[in-house]
């Protein structure tokens, strides 16, 4: 079976959610990376969903409000909204486990009672730093000399355009302060090339760094296999 779009309700609106259902009660919510990293890893995540299907595991990949097909403007959305939206999605689709990728963990950090599988987690300030650097480089090409400190200051006063995304003050401030949470039930998985502590390492490459969106079928399969084994009752 191929993945299909379903929806979930949040703040009186419907948001889309890609769903690959096997009819199993093992239902995992996949929380995507944020901003550009999400685009670069979308294909990989869909491959993970197909592979999870072969392990009799249903998976759900929601659009965060303000991203992908969402009708809300990103500028109006905060990290709290993302947290509330994912909680709503998890309840509506009877999710049993959560797998988050990169900064995705920040959007489910308050779901402490859930079982978390966490891939290469990163804090919010790191994601913002990369986006601000892209803005600094673009400004430099138009003869402007901007600094990371100036951009951070501007974000405090109003919305800020970073690498094609318009971020409201609240989202910027909340992300900038968002550290990687320590969950009660967690499994941290990293790439073999990453020397930071982890419960398991997977062979593959950092697709979120790739200049163009790419795929790594072997890594997607290894991720799905690790998630499926972790979900075994």
């Amino acid at each position: 079976m191929a993945p299909a779009f379903v929806d979930y309700e949040f703040a009186g609106r419907k948001e889309l959610c890609l769903c690959h259902s096997t009819g199993s009660t093992r239902r995992v919510l996949l929380v995507p990376p944020l901003f550009d990293e999400m685009n670069r890893m979308r294909k990989m995540l869909v491959d993970v969903m197909h592979a999870l299907g072969s392990f009799e595991t249903s998976s759900f990949l929601p659009d965060l409000p303000g991203t992908n097909e969402s009708l809300v403007a990103l500028e109006q959305v905060s990290l709290s909204d993302w947290r509330d939206a994912l909680r709503a999605c998890a309840e509506q689709h009877e999710i049993s486990h959560i797998a988050s990728f990169r900064a995705g963990i920040l959007a489910v950090a308050e779901m402490e009672a859930a079982h978390h599988w966490i891939f290469s987690p990163v804090k919010g300030a790191t994601i913002l730093r990369t986006m601000m650097r892209t803005r600094v480089a673009a400004d430099r090409e138009s003869g402007l000399n901007t600094s990371l400190a100036e951009l951070t200051e501007q974000a405090g006063a109003g919305s800020l355009e970073l690498a094609g995304n318009i971020l409201g003050s609240e989202l910027f401030a909340q992300l900038n302060a968002a550290e990687i949470p320590d969950m009660t039930s967690q499994r941290i998985v990293r790439l073999e090339s990453d020397s930071k502590p982890a419960d398991s390492h997977i062979a593959g490459s950092a697709l979120w760094l790739r200049a163009e969106p790419d795929e790594d079928p072997a890594m997607s399969f290894a991720i799905a296999q690790d998630i499926a084994e972790w979900m075994e009752p």
Partner: peptide
């Protein structure tokens, strides 16, 4: 492939992997 966005990602990733801070 090494455009300004890739360079931005490279700098942040090096900071993260080597535990360093790179100034503007």
């Amino acid at each position: 492939e090494l455009d300004s966005m890739a360079v931005a990602g490279l700098l942040t990733e090096l900071e993260d992997r080597l535990d360093i801070m790179i100034e503007d």
